[in-house]
């Protein structure tokens, strides 16, 4: 392996771990959802990195003769739908956050747990 060729993988693992850290360490529910989104974006970057072909163009047919090199369209399709589904699920999480705030009066995890135990 060489460092330049693997730079994308390393950074996407780094971003994944930043998102993971925010999810497990921060108590605020909105912050957790932001972390989850960073995590999912890093997975998108990993997939798109794998689809890239050096010297290729975007997978839209170029008219004219000659062999054209195209980037692999399959990861693009998978990630395209994953982004839209990701925002839909994030929205459900945010809606749950709003409901938790209305019910408990807070969106900090430990305060919610305290209220649950005192019931």
């Amino acid at each position: 392996m060489n460092l330049i060729g693997h730079y994308n993988y390393l950074i996407s693992i780094f971003l994944m771990m930043v998102g993971f850290f925010v999810v497990i360490c921060r108590g605020n529910l909105i912050k957790k959802l932001i972390g989850l989104n960073i995590f999912s974006t890093s997975v998108f970057i990993l997939y798109i990195t794998m689809g890239k072909v050096a010297g290729g163009t975007a997978p839209i047919v170029v008219p004219g003769p000659g062999p054209h090199i195209y980037t692999n369209p399959l990861p693009h399709v998978l990630i395209l739908t994953a982004i839209v589904v990701g925002v839909a699920t994030t929205a459900v999480g945010l809606a749950l956050t709003v409901r938790i705030k209305e019910r408990y009066g807070t969106i900090e995890e430990d305060e919610i747990r305290l209220k649950d135990e005192s019931l």
């Binding site: 998108f44 798109i48 990195t49 890239k52 290729g56 163009t57 990861p75």
Partner: peptide, 11 residues
Amino acid sequence: TMDAVDVAFTE
């Protein structure tokens, strides 16, 4: 830059 124009658009 990674040629995924549709994905970039959506993101």
